[in-house]
Nucleic acid binder design. Structure first.
Lengths: 240, 240
DNA sequence: ATGACTATTATGTCTACACATAAGGAGCGC
DNA sequence: GCGCTCCTTATGTGTAGACATAATAGTCAT
């Protein structure tokens, strides 16, 4: 029984990834400078030797990356300035420190179970009388205090948290592995160093401290509120 | 000539947006808790009354939003914790102020054309002897200083900038409309108030000032470096 | 048992086609 | 000129069908 030699029919096909790459190239280093009106999908599909569906997907994804502006009837245009948005990954401190090539150490400073104070109940939309666990910990990079973590965890939503002993690993890593979140509020700000920041991070009183506050909920139930104070001179940087 | 009554065939169709909404609902408020293994695409498509293509797109987009984890053969699983990434839109100050319902006013404080100082050349990878335009401006919300802008623009890359008179509109709006960028470095930090911040933003000397620094390049050529200092108590917040 | 091959399966992607929808633009009445 | 309708056009989205690919699970020989 003889077989016809079969060439893989999909092997030569232009994929939407290839199309994307070429489009991005034409935008950033090629003839499609800012403001250029691109040919229509059908025309481009013919030029690239793919279906309109594939071209549509490629253009859609390049648009999502912020380089194009598409409007029905008006066509596809190269943005004057790529969409002004920054994506931050919020890494675990541990990962951040180890990525920088420093050794990581963690210490628990305080641990306290108590009814949620009023300001916290208001901030996190907690019901009256909810119990919370309050933790204070420090993260060290090469033995030097890097980040001070002041965390509140809703023990009503997570009763197991009260049995956790956070002396070995931080609450962040435990939470990430244990509970999800559906809603996050994230703030960046500059605060004046308080007593805790002075003691633990080596700031002078009143020094500017870069602080991140992060509140998370799951299915409308408060999970945790954390304030992360950083060592002197810390910058949060992203490139894109 | 009689016509058959034609029902719009697409009107009843399940759209990928509807599917996405239902999937997200099932994840965040429904039976698909973290770790759940979802049924296969074909099965889901049947249940939702749509094609596998549509179901695939819905699942793909929910995955992009960080709620699902998909692997060939292994299937689709709800993530334990939604992907930890934050997206910041970087609005024009004007838009930010007006969105908050305040009136916007702009003022140019200083304007100076000079050869790039060494620190700036190093910071922006500028060639020796490059001329830059240095601008200082303030953005007011309801008459109160909101943001202080300290900007350097590479006049070698943008010779037209020297002819621009930035008394009426800020350099940001001009740049956005004039020149694109392909590379951005964005930093957030807490600085101590300097003389300029004291004079213009009403800080006390040494007060913590939330500062954003943003450097942009286009095709490896430096465009602009800007430091934005914010009024007392400013928080940059995002929800997702 | 163990390592190598094979079958199976769920997702990934491409095609061709059709209809939907937003919005620019022409033409018209005033 | 101004505002209105209507046509056209480019993108947006849905369908059925096919093949691609990665990864698991099972089979077989050693």
């Amino acid at each position: 029984m003889t077989m016809e030699p079969q060439v893989d029919p999909m092997l030569d096909r232009t994929t939407y990834r290839e199309v994307m790459a070429e489009i991005l190239h034409r935008i950033t280093d090629g003839p499609w400078g800012p403001g250029t009106l691109l040919p229509g999908e059908i025309e481009l599909a013919e030029e690239f030797g793919c279906s309109r569906t594939t071209m549509n997907r490629a253009l859609r994804e390049v648009t999502e990356q912020g380089f194009l502006d598409r409007r029905r009837k008006a066509g596809t245009r190269v943005r004057m300035a790529p969409l002004r948005q920054a994506r931050f990954e919020m890494p675990l401190v541990r990962a951040e420190i180890e990525k920088a090539g420093a050794s990581y150490r963690y210490a628990l400073l305080a641990r306290d179970s108590l009814p949620a104070p009023d300001w916290l109940r208001a901030r996190m939309r907690l019901p009256a009388g909810a119990r919370v666990l309050h933790l204070v910990c420090v993260h060290f990079a090469d033995g030097i205090a890097f980040q001070l973590e002041d965390r509140w965890i809703n023990a009503r939503a997570l009763p197991q948290v009260l049995k956790q002993d956070f002396t070995a690993t931080g609450p962040n890593e435990w939470l990430v592995a244990t509970v999800p979140f559906s809603e996050v509020e994230l703030s960046f700000m500059a605060c004046a160093a308080d007593a805790m920041a002075v003691d633990q991070l080596g700031h002078a009183p009143g020094d500017p401290v870069f602080t991140v506050e992060r509140a998370t909920w799951w299915q409308s139930e408060a999970i945790t509120l954390v304030r992360l104070s950083h060592r002197k001179g810390y910058r949060m940087t992203t490139r894109y």
